[in-house]
Design a protein around this nucleic acid. Structure first.
Length: 555
RNA sequence: GCGCCUGUAGCUCAGCAGGAUAGAGCAACUGACUUCUAAUCAGUGGGUCGGGGGUUCGAAUCCUCCCAGGCGCGCCA
C-alpha cells in the first residue's frame, strides 16, 4: 500500500522535475490520515515543495494530482488535494481485494519488508550484573529489547542480540565474598559479612548448596585462599539462573560477551593503547585519564585507577569499539534510565575512534513501579528485598508481563499493578487482543464442521468483492497498514506502536464480529468473511509474535 | 548548581521522520447475551496538550525561558 503509492508519486515527480526546474526530489512521506473520511493515505510532498519551488502548495498539489490521474487511474478511486496542500488517495476496492488475497496466499511472509536492506544491527540489552536474579526492571528491558529485535528483523534488518556480562571487577568478587560469609555462617565459624555485600536470600541458598556438595572443605580457609572458587561458583549459578529466567520469559540471546574475556584477550589494553597513540590519555594523580571532555563529555574520565585496576569505563571503551569493529551498521544499547549519564561518555569514545556517532543509539528504559492493590510494593535492593522477574512471571504469567511492559513508551514510567495484571478484565489489554485471535480460531473450528477449512480461506477461492460493508473495507485497510506500523516501529525503535496497533485491530474485529454474522446461510458470503477473518488472524498472530506474546486458539 | 527524561480528559496513557476537527482504555452514566466465545459490543459526557515567548503556510510535536515531578552527576558498578 505504502510502496505502491510512494512509487507512483516518485514517478510523477520525476516527470514534473524538469518542467519545474527542480534538482532533487524530496523524500516522499506518506501517512495515514487521522480522519478516515479524508482518504486512505496522504502525502505532504506538495507542501514540502512549496519553498524550493516558490509556489503555493495547493497549486503544486493540483499539478501532481492531474499527472497521477493521467497515469494511474486503475489503482485509486480518487486522488484529490485538500486542506493546505495535502494529496489524499483513496484506493479502489479491487486493489484492496487484491492486497488481501495476496496476504492470504503468502501468509505472514507477506508482512515482511526490506526497508532494512539487510543492514546489520546489534542490540545489546538486559546485561544485568551476574550478582543477583533479574528484577522487574530487567524484565522490561528484556521485553523491549526482544520485541525491538523482532521488529527490526521484520523490517529487513540483520539483527544480533547480545548480552554483555560484567563478570570482571569488584562486584562479582563481592558476590563471592558474600557467599563465602554465608557459608561460614552455616559452619558456625562466622566470617564478617562484607559491608556492601549482597544480602538476598539467594546468597544463602548458594552457600547452602556449596555446603551440601563440599561439606566443610573450606572451613579452615580464608577468602584469599578460596575466594576464586566461591566467586566462580556463585557467578556461574547466577548467570545460568539469568539465562533460565530469560528463556522462560521468551528471550534467547545470540551471543553472550564476557567482559573478562575482553581483558584476557588483551583487547582492553589495545583499545587504551590506541587512545594513547592519539594523545587522548594522560596521567594525573597516579591514575590514567581519557580526554572525553574533548568530545562533549562533562569531564575527563579515569580509565586506570591509582591501584592499577581498570575502571568499568575502560572495558566499555573497548567493548563499544569492538562491537563496531565487528561490522555492524548500527549498535543499539538498551539501558536503565538511571544510566543516562553514561551516554555522552560512550559517544565521546566513538568520536575518539573516529567512528560516526549516529551508528550508536541508546534506548533508555524508565523505572517500573510495582503495585499491589494500588499500593507500591516496597523494594530495597540493599536489603536484598526486591521482586524478581521470576516471581512476576510465576504470578501473572510471561505473556501478560511482556505485553504490559510494551504498553508504554520505553522512556515513560510504568506502574505495573500485579492485581490488575492477573485480572482477566477489560482493563487488561492482553486478553482483548488474544481474545480476538481465539474467536477467529473458534470460527474456523465451527466452519470446518460445515466443510470449510482454513486453507479455503487462504487459497483465494473466496469472492472477496462480497466484502462490501464499510467495516470490512476498513478492516482490510487496517491490515494493509500493518507493514507501515512495523516500519515506523523499527525506525523509531518503539515496539509499543505494535501493541497499540494490535489493540486497534482487535477492536475493529470485535465490533465487526458483534455486528455481522460471519458464518451464515449464505455460503459465498461466509467464505468471503472467513477469508477476511483469516487476514485479521494472520496479522494478529504476526504482531503478537513480534511482541513475544502467544496467540492462543482457545481462551 | 549542571545534565537527561517526563508533564495531553477524573485515572493510566497513545498521538508515527512538524500536518487537516487532539484520540484510546479505565472510571461515570444509558443500553445489548434463546443467535458464530459478553474476556464482547453500541452510545453519552469529559481538554487552556504544565506556563510564557519564538521559528513557519502549519506546532502537542522543533527552539528558548520558566514551573512541577523522576533520575543521574565517584579513581562505584
Amino acid at each position: 500500500m505504502k510502496q505502491d503509492t510512494v512509487e507512483i508519486i516518485r514517478n510523477v515527480l520525476e516527470d514534473l522535475k524538469n518542467r519545474w526546474g527542480l534538482e532533487d526530489i524530496p523524500g516522499i512521506e506518506v501517512e495515514i490520515p487521522r480522519n478516515g473520511g479524508m482518504g486512505d493515505i496522504a502525502t505532504t510532498v506538495a507542501m514540502r515543495l512549496a519553498k524550493p519551488l516558490g509556489k503555493p502548495p495547493r497549486e503544486i498539489a493540483a499539478e501532481i494530482v492531474e499527472k497521477i490521474k493521467e497515469q494511474e487511474a486503475d489503482l485509486f478511486e480518487s486522488v484529490e488535494t485538500a486542506g493546505p496542500g495535502f494529496i489524499n488517495f483513496r484506493f479502489r476496492g479491487e486493489f484492496l481485494c487484491r492486497s488481501l488475497a495476496e496476504l492470504l496466499r503468502k501468509g505472514r511472509p507477506a508482512l515482511r519488508t526490506d526497508t532494512g536492506k539487510g543492514r546489520r544491527i546489534q542490540v545489546e540489552f538486559v546485561s544485568a550484573n551476574p550478582t543477583g536474579p533479574l528484577h522487574v526492571g530487567h524484565g522490561r528491558g528484556a521485553a523491549v529489547g526482544d520485541a525491538l529485535c523482532n521488529i527490526l528483523k521484520a523490517a529487513g534488518f540483520d539483527v544480533q542480540k547480545e548480552f554483555y556480562i560484567n563478570d570482571a571487577g569488584l562486584q562479582v568478587r563481592l558476590l563471592g565474598e558474600s557467599v563465602f560469609a554465608r557459608y561460614r555462617q552455616i559452619l558456625g565459624t562466622g566470617a564478617p559479612f562484607p559491608e556492601d555485600g549482597y544480602r538476598g536470600a539467594y546468597i544463602e541458598s548458594i552457600a547452602k548448596e556449596i555446603h551440601d556438595r563440599y561439606g566443610d572443605r573450606y572451613r579452615e580457609r580464608t577468602f584469599e585462599e578460596c575466594g576464586e572458587f566461591f566467586t566462580e561458583y556463585a557467578y556461574r549459578m547466577m548467570l545460568s539462573g539469568i539465562e533460565r529466567d530469560l528463556r522462560d520469559f521468551g528471550v534467547v540471546f545470540d551471543r553472550w560477551q564476557s567482559e573478562r574475556e575482553l581483558h584476557l584477550q588483551g583487547k582492553v589494553r589495545e583499545a587504551l593503547e590506541e587512545l594513547r597513540s592519539k594523545g587522548l590519555l594522560y596521567e594525573k594523580n597516579g591514575a590514567t585519564w581519557f580526554r572525553s571532555s574533548r568530545f562533549g563529555d562533562d569531564k575527563d574520565r579515569v580509565v586506570v585507577k591509582q591501584d592499577g585496576e581498570y575502571t568499568y569505563f575502560a572495558s566499555d571503551i573497548c567493548y563499544h569499539k569492538y562491537k563496531l569493529e565487528r561490522g555492524f551498521d548500527t549498535i543499539i544499547d538498551i539501558w536503565g534510565a538511571d544510566h543516562h549519564g553514561y551516554v555522552p561518555r560512550i559517544r565521546s569514545v566513538l568520536e575518539a575512534f573516529d567512528l560516526p556517532r549516529d551508528k550508536f543509539r541508546v534506548i533508555l528504559i524508565q523505572m517500573v513501579s510495582l503495585l499491589r492493590h494500588g499500593e507500591p510494593v516496597q523494594m530495597s535492593k540493599r536489603a536484598g528485598e526486591f521482586i524478581t522477574l521470576r516471581e512476576v512471571m510465576d504470578e501473572v504469567g510471561a505473556d501478560i508481563t511482556r505485553f504490559i511492559f510494551l504498553t508504554r513508551r520505553a522512556d515513560s514510567h510504568l506502574d505495573f499493578d500485579l492485581d490488575i495484571a492477573k485480572e482477566q478484565s477489560a482493563e487488561n489489554p492482553v486478553f482483548y487482543v488474544q481474545y480476538a485471535f481465539a474467536r477467529i480460531s473458534s470460527l474456523f473450528r465451527q466452519a470446518s464442521e460445515r466443510g470449510i477449512r482454513i486453507e479455503d480461506a487462504e487459497a483465494g477461492a473466496a469472492d472477496l468483492k462480497m466484502l462490501a460493508e464499510h467495516e470490512e473495507t476498513s478492516i482490510i485497510k487496517k491490515l494493509l497498514q500493518y507493514i507501515m506500523v512495523v516500519e515506523s516501529a523499527a525506525h523509531a525503535c518503539e515496539p509499543h506502536r505494535i501493541t497499540y496497533y494490535l489493540q486497534e485491530l482487535a477492536g475493529m474485529f470485535h465490533a465487526y464480529y458483534y455486528k455481522y454474522r460471519i458464518i451464515s446461510g449464505d455460503d459465498r458470503l461466509t467464505r468471503a468473511r472467513l477469508a477476511l477473518c483469516r487476514g485479521v488472524q494472520i496479522v494478529l498472530e504476526d504482531g503478537l509474535g513480534l511482541l513475544g506474546v502467544s496467540a492462543p486458539e482457545k481462551m
